[in-house]
């Protein structure tokens, strides 16, 4: 229950009919009008039901559409994988931005989010890191230089 297990048939973040419509469009990614899509859905549905669903999916940004003659034709705006990846990203982000212990308990973040108005602190930290980086590089260069004169001395011994 609590791990990463089996897959479900529903498309993440979509209702059953929306999932069916998107699955049909993804399976054959040419443009399709409501009338062309109806037989591909595998069950009898009212024309207006599918039209409303397509309109909803268009508003959600999953479909693009253009007018062909008197009806709209629809096309997926992203692949199934892209949509699911985007959904997953949204969910993780929602977890990070939603206050609540239950959310925090399941996520360990690389760094606790920094609140608004912390730009000066971040800038100071970046400056510190830059300075440290330079110092480290200088120290390494120094070690290399120091090593070169010692080599003949070592040899002479």
């Amino acid at each position: 229950m609590l791990g990463f297990g089996k897959k479900t048939a529903l498309v993440a973040g979509l209702g059953r009919l929306e999932s069916e419509v998107m699955t049909a469009l993804w399976a054959q990614p040419e443009e399709a009008s409501v009338r062309e899509l109806l037989p591909r859905l595998g069950r009898s549905l009212a024309y207006t039901t599918v039209m409303t669903t397509l309109d909803r999916l268009y508003k959600k940004g999953l479909l693009t559409r253009r007018k062909a003659e008197r009806a709209f034709v629809y096309r997926p705006s992203c692949s199934r994988e892209e949509w699911q990846s985007q959904r997953a990203g949204e969910v993780v982000r929602e977890f990070l931005t939603t206050p609540g212990a239950a959310h925090g308990a399941v996520l360990a973040t690389l760094v606790e989010a920094v609140g608004p108005g912390q730009e000066p602190l971040l800038a100071a930290l970046e400056a510190k890191i830059r300075a440290h980086r330079s110092a480290l590089r200088a120290a390494e260069a120094g070690r290399t230089e120091n090593r070169e004169p010692t080599a003949p001395a070592e040899k002479s011994q």
Binding site: L2, G3, F4, G5, K7, T8, A12, E81, W83, Q84, S85, Q86, R87, A88, G89, V91, V92, F95, V106, L107
Partner: peptide, 9 residues
């Protein structure tokens, strides 16, 4: 979370 990441990751 696990479901979404499994499907979308």
């Amino acid at each position: 979370l696990a479901g979404e990441c499994r499907r979308g990751g």
